[in-house]
Amino acid sequence: MTTQSIDWSSEILAAMKAREITTLCTIPDGGLTRLINLVSDDSDMRLVTLSTEEEGMGVVTGQWLGGKKSMIAMQSSGVGNCINALGLPSALRAPCLMLVTMRGQWGEFNPWQVAMGQGTRPALEAVGVRCFPVDKQAEIGETFAAAADFAFNSRLSAAVLVSQRVIGAKGFGQK
């Protein structure tokens, strides 16, 4: 795992707190470990571990209906599981904020990740999700904040796509 020379996970947590986003739903990815641990260790935050990513669309929509803000973090392969489910927040005009760490692109070792990795952004855009790609650690925090404001101010779906170039390709013990 690539170390975070810039602590973008803490920046995201701070941006969440500044916007009263108090719940993080997730199916984890390696690059999300620090953020998930930060949320898990924070008594003001709630972590919801899902069984499949599309449940996150239900949880965040239900939370918004009840007056609370929440979001979903996942690996890009999980985006494929979400496509029909993204119709729920869309139909209700509920905000849906997604943080996606990319696989199947920069330096991918596992060919099984490639199809969904390449298809992540087109699939999201095909169902009306505004994508905010970012490939520099220094820009993750501000990009996340911008996407969050877009989602909650406009009551639309937005996805921050964090490049594999930032996270680092999983090596499976390869040198």
Binding site: T23, R46, V48, G58, V59, T61, G62, L65, G66, L88
Partner: peptide, 8 residues
């Protein structure tokens, strides 16, 4: 899952 989010 929607009901869960609402209940939370």
């Amino acid at each position: 899952s929607t009901a869960l989010g609402l209940a939370m």
